[in-house]
Design a protein around this nucleic acid. Sequence first.
RNA 1: GCGCCCGUAGCUCAACCGGAUAGAGCAGCGGUCUUCUAAACCGCAGGUUGCAGGUUCGAGUCCUGCCGGGCGCGCCA
Length: 558
Amino acid sequence: MTMHDTLTRQLLAALDALGGAPDGFRPEFEIPANPEHGDLSTNAAMQLARHFRRSPRHIADSIAEHMKTDPDLVAGVEVAGAGFINFRFADRWLHTRLGHLLSEGSTYGRTRHGAGKRALVEFVSANPTGPLTVGHGRNAVLGDTVATLLEWTGYDVTREYYFNDAGRQMRVLGESVRARYEACARPDMPTKTIDGVTVPGSFPDDGYLGHYIADIAEKLFEEHGARLLDEKSSDIFKQAAEKAIFAGIEATLNRLGIRMDSYFNERTLYDSGAIWDIVDALRQKNLAYDKDGAVWFRTTEFGKEQDTVLVKSSGEPTYRLPDIGYHVNKIERGFDRIVDIFGADHIATFPDVLSGVEALGHDTSKISVLIYQFVTLVRSGEPVKMSTRKATYVTLDELMDEVGEDVTRFFFLMRSANTHLEFDLDLAREASEKNPVFYLQYAHARIASILRKADETGLRSDGQAELSLLTHPAETSLIKQLLGFPEAVHMAAELTEPQKLATWLRDTATSFSKFYGECRIIGQEEALATARLQLASATRIVLHNGLTVLGISAPDSM
RNA sequence: GCGCCCGUAGCUCAACCGGAUAGAGCAGCGGUCUUCUAAACCGCAGGUUGCAGGUUCGAGUCCUGCCGGGCGCGCCA
């Protein structure tokens, strides 16, 4: 039983003296910002003031007086402020929990909130028209970390990548490759200029200008010579491009430590007829109708200003229709929790998708959407406008080359997804030494170093230690911090806000640094040294596990 | 014009779905290495939480209206 549960039960029992708690009442606990306010605090008395028609202070006093707390768990119950009830943990409880932490080791922080449930996290989902950019990086890192967070809270998680290799974008891609290929075969062919880039005369005006297109074309020319010039369709070029680009995307994701469990091709939904079933079902509910040769979705029924086209007059669906089908598919696959990671540009479209899913009789409460604001790159003080087609982007690979994989991941995780991220490339490159990620890694490396040194001096770093010797303020506050790890992971997962864990880990490193500064280990009397070594070891476990959740390495030396 | 997001220290950002004295890092100033990693630690300074109202025991957090920035508002994705 957790401390929360125990205190909840005891508090509810104490309310009997006032006539009993109202039905369904659950006290809320929080960790006070100010340590003087104890280790855990509840505002229950304030919330109950109306119900009991007594002052919060009076109720709090009564609760404090009647609560039967276990002295091994709680050392003090105090009423403060407007009616807060503050609990102070007993050292003995802290030491017991620290012992548990040490024996759990690399699994410490995992909980079972989602045990037996399956979650699907869909992220990246970039169509294979070019290398991943910095913008995709934020999506990728957020999605992967949310997935890991859910795994740590007990979910069985599937990481999925949704893509579309049909459609106009990909046709243009194929034609772009074909034009470059033609130039390889006929070096004397005329050229033209698009957006300042010299391209073959047959190059589509809205073609993809990136250098990778020419690379793909050259490789085709090396393999096939000029034979492909006679190809009627550009399919072979499209397919070669898709294959090469996807391989590149996978390689980039691998560098970031990201492995997808499944790739879902939008075409599946066409082949199975699923999208047409949806149109029929919506028609039957009078939520879809024909106008101007197109099929419209009555989104005005769901509070939108205008209806939305589902099927163009050409007979081709817009992306919204397969999107609805895809989400229905996710639900039908039996996931208990479905998370989408979207850029801010999708903010207005996903409500349509949810409306569609709901109209078809599915429970959309399982679906949650994490929206992240855009990344603005700044280079030499100037914002860089990015376009995949124009090739005026900075790729994720280039970013990692400049600042490293760990810094890249941490940079995307250290801030709330909801805030606009300004990424100054020059600064990231020069100032990488000051990056907060090094602060965390340094603390971990420092502990590893201490453990090595302790080993050399023959100090036991395993086995029995008198943890009750850990009573220095720097020690107890570090222990309290470490014991909050499972809850920090759970909260970050529940809110799908990895940034919460990043912030929490920083606090942990700070707490350790204080301990390190005030409490020597090696050279102390043996029992105390051993106990402190165990505390350092526990900190290492937490930092290691926390960095692992964020997908960042925990080096033993720096 | 409409919808959504953001506005907190000089800069970049926190603040646990309304709680107690709004916190870190960087930049600035001043201290700390003959002892476990100084990529660190300690101290000082820095604020009318964009503005104006409202809701209540209590508002950075919720509501309304302005101001400023971003993203959308297609038979593109």
